[in-house]
Simulated assay, not measured.
Amino acid sequence: MLVSVLIPLYNSEKYITETIQSVLDQSYTNIECIIMDDGSTDNSLSIAQQFTSDKVLVFTQQNKGASAARNKAFENSTGELIQYLDADDLLHPDKIKLQVENYHKHQNPDILLSGTWGRFTLDKNQVQWEHQVLNKNYSQPFSWLIDSWNGLGMAQPGVWLTPRKLIEKAGPWHESLSLNDDGEFFCRVILQASSIIHVPDSQVYYRSNINTSLSQSRSEKALASELKSYQLYEHHILAKADNIEIRTALANNYLNFIYQFYTDDKQLAQKAEQAFLKLKIGKMWPVGGKRFKQIAKLIGFKNTLKIKSYIKL
């Protein structure tokens, strides 16, 4: 069974060699690696092209964003199973093998396979593995979304091994989203799956704290993308199921958006509040840090937000 590893590449000359090598070092060998350069302005493309072979195919396009690069890479792939991998992240040598073995074991073409991820900066041997509630099997995939939206964990895109048919049913990456595009995409994929099988030793190394993404994430475009992704969550899941548990989890997304970005963009925060109210599940509840929650219980969520504008809570 062929596995396609899809890598969107943009200005990652420092890391792309190690990333590609982690693919070539996989103990599962029936792999093709599709690299889609998204108009890099450094040496990323030329470095990637040095790996060109019958297993590694390198394409390029004008800069359109990571989601567009992933979509184009998928179009050029032929694997029955799809592994997404960012250009600065790494796969454990047995990552794909363990998940493929579990895929065959369950004999269900619509299962989605998850793994374990950890953060590192420069040395993968210093990785900090994420031990979270989500690291388990789910017989009802939408329950994974509910747990995640309630703050019980998240998944870095590389943890998944996804049957091609699930992606074809879910549709392509949303190319207009610049922030949380992975969350929105895998929300749709998860809702198409029959179950989620967690493979604990199937590991991904997530490189973090290497750029100035924090300032970018607070741009107006990025914040609008984040809120849009939450609205799309609501659209996708309520089309499948609707109950108080789901609506509460959706509402929690909006509350966390308000908590995080109230001081950055009050207009978007107001839109998030309106989306919360439309869910009709009652009053806002405190989210965020311990101190914020304590004060919010006394004077209310919105009043505490105003205080947070002036002092750190």
Rank of each mutant, 00 (worst) to 15 (best):
S213N: 15
I197V: 13
Y138D: 00
F186C: 07
E13W: 06
I295C: 00
Q62V: 13
N137G: 02
W173C: 11
L122Q: 15
A66L: 11
R291K: 14
T78A: 15
T60P: 05
I34H: 03
L255F: 05
E175A: 12
V3H: 02
T19C: 09
I295S: 00
G288K: 00
K306W: 07
M36A: 07
I146W: 00
R247M: 07
S27E: 10
L91A: 02
A222S: 11
S148T: 12
F186I: 08
A239I: 06
D110Q: 10
V133A: 15
K228C: 15
R164Y: 03
G79C: 05
L179K: 11
V100F: 01
N102Y: 09
R218Q: 14
H235K: 14
N253W: 07
E220W: 10
Q192E: 12
L232C: 12
I35Q: 02
T60A: 11
L250H: 05
Q50W: 06
S202C: 07
G289P: 01
G151C: 03
S194A: 06
K293A: 03
A269N: 03
E234G: 15
K105A: 10
N102Q: 12
A66Q: 10
D86F: 05
Q61T: 13
F261Y: 14
E75Q: 12
L313C: 00
S114G: 10
K290F: 01
H131V: 12
I258E: 00
Q270D: 10
L112Q: 00
E13A: 14
G151K: 02
S46Q: 14
I47T: 08
